[in-house]
């Protein structure tokens, strides 16, 4: 398996190699699909903009924006991830073995982000289709203005969950400290149990769909009304 050592190579060389490798696999020009990065040492923008089905294992913790705008690649961070991990991800899978800092999965449009530890504030902010499964807890203002996709939290959620959200689906197993503006608890229906079962399985989370509660938009802020002014 090719290994890139960030103690020796610089970031540019790393991303260039991975981006080239991902494209080559996508275009069936190569079958070098397994890559490893050693000594990430909290570097920013590791493995960003990959565009093809390669698997990358990062042997440690990362700084900001690891796996940003990922397409098709599977990226596993063996440590924890800094802010904005998998931001604007399009497809593929990103797994964080440790914790994730703020804005995990921000504006993500597709694919699956799994955080095995906890995720900090603003997890799934402005998400646009991504699926996020957090094994632990999430911080405040998570799923703020979330447009679509699914956020599953096996632990507890902090303040103002789902503030001003649109059509994203939120599932929390533990407690929710408070709901944000226009976010309400909704009835759990069979189709959601199915969706949850699938996501929990893909995320390797040890939880049963029946243990979760569902939250979503009350759709009261979709059209301006002066009587809602205090919620804006």
């Amino acid at each position: 398996m090719p290994t890139i050592d960030l103690a020796k190579d610089d970031l540019r060389a790393l991303n260039q190699q991975l981006q080239t490798a991902a494209r080559a696999v996508a275009e069936a020009q190569s079958n070098e699909t397994q890559w490893r990065i050693d000594n990430p040492r909290g570097s920013h923008a590791i493995a960003v903009g990959l565009d093809g089905p390669i698997a990358v294992t990062v042997g440690g913790s990362t700084g900001y924006y690891c796996a940003g705008m990922n397409k098709e690649a599977s990226i596993t961070v063996e440590g924890s991830a800094g802010p904005g991990v998998a931001e604007n991800m399009m497809s593929g899978t990103v797994v964080i073995e440790g914790d994730a800092s703020q804005y995990a999965g921000a504006t993500g449009r597709g694919g699956l982000l799994v955080v095995k530890g906890n995720a900090a504030s603003r997890c799934g902010i402005s998400m646009k289709g991504i699926d996020i499964v957090v094994h632990g807890n999430i911080g405040h203002m998570s799923a703020f203005m979330a447009q679509s996709g699914t956020l599953v939290v096996c632990g507890d959620a902090g303040d103002a969950l789902g503030d001003s959200l649109y059509e994203a689906r939120l599932f929390v197993r533990g407690s929710v400290k408070s709901l944000g503006a226009d976010c309400v608890e909704k009835e759990m229906r069979p189709e959601y149990l199915e969706l949850l079962a699938d996501l929990l399985e893909r995320a390797g989370a040890d939880a049963r769909p029946e243990e979760f509660r569902r939250y979503g938009s009350a759709r009261q802020l979709y059209t301006f009304n002066i009587d809602n002014a205090s919620s804006y």
């Binding site: 970031l11 540019r12 991303n15 920013h44 923008a45 960003v48 903009g49 700084g63 900001y64 924006y65 940003g68 705008m69 802010p83 904005g84 931001e87 804005y103 921000a106 504006t107 603003r122 902010i125 402005s126 703020f144 203005m145």
Partner: peptide
């Protein structure tokens, strides 16, 4: 949604350049 302030902006610019 994923950065605040000039220090973060510097990292955001780095990410966009890398992509």
């Amino acid at each position: 949604p994923d950065w605040t302030g000039p220090d973060d902006l510097e990292i955001k610019i780095l990410e966009l350049r890398e992509i």
